[in-house]
Design a protein around this nucleic acid. Structure first.
Lengths: 113, 113
DNA sequence: GATGTATTCAACTGACTGGTTGAATACGAA
DNA sequence: TTCGTATTCAACCAGTCAGTTGAATACATC
């Protein structure tokens, strides 16, 4: 059951922990781009960016296609959804618990927006 | 302008990149806990967990109170919101762009669920 | 086939990180 | 004051990671 589901989530969090990779994701949200295009804004070598993209790919955050010698990179929004799902899960558990605590301390306000 | 706003976001992403720290966040969503309580489920030393909590605190993901010699840790859901806000921002930009591309290629389906 | 461009592979390096153990601090209880 | 518990500080170590440069691969064009 769920062989590497946890692994994928972990890789996604690790991938977004790097500011360069987050910048790449931000750029890709506006459309696919090649490695060179993605490297241009950053003061690091193209090779380094290539490896960043590989990390994002392993995390399922991006996919790649072929176009002659180019390898355009595309955002894979499902992986981003998995991340927000994880975060929201615990955020909502916390919030729900908080509300019921409020209700406990202040029983008159049981039905509040 | 926004002195360390970026820094806070970065620390939050880095903090959640570690599975132990994510487990701590998950546990705290069900209510505050002491360092010892948080360390119990993990096969590492209490000192190590103490440092994990410190990282979470620096990222603004948790806060701490005093109770005699205990230092209960509480979840700070606003930081989690900042994370989802970042992710959703680019996820939505991507999705919006995708829809308008669809409409361009297939102009008849302008109003689809 | 030779050249140029886009990308990746390989080997190396310095910095950071997560773990350890041992000592220190803070506080309540006896 | 002494003892026990909770937590943190400090020094150390091994592994990981992001960057580098140089060589290799893949493809289009000349």
């Amino acid at each position: 059951m769920e062989p590497d589901e946890d692994d994928r989530l972990d890789r996604a969090f690790v991938a977004l922990a790097d500011p360069v990779r987050r910048a790449i994701v931000a750029r890709l949200s506006r459309g696919p781009a090649t490695v060179n295009e993605l490297a241009a804004p950053h003061p690091i070598s193209v090779q380094a960016v290539s490896r960043h993209i590989h990390v994002l790919e392993e995390a399922g955050l991006v996919t790649r296609t072929r176009d002659a010698q180019r390898r355009p990179v595309h955002l894979a929004p499902e992986a981003l959804e998995r991340l927000t799902a994880w975060i929201d899960r615990y955020r909502l558990i916390h919030e729900r618990r908080f509300r019921s605590l409020d209700a406990l301390l202040d029983p008159d306000e049981k039905d509040r927006p």
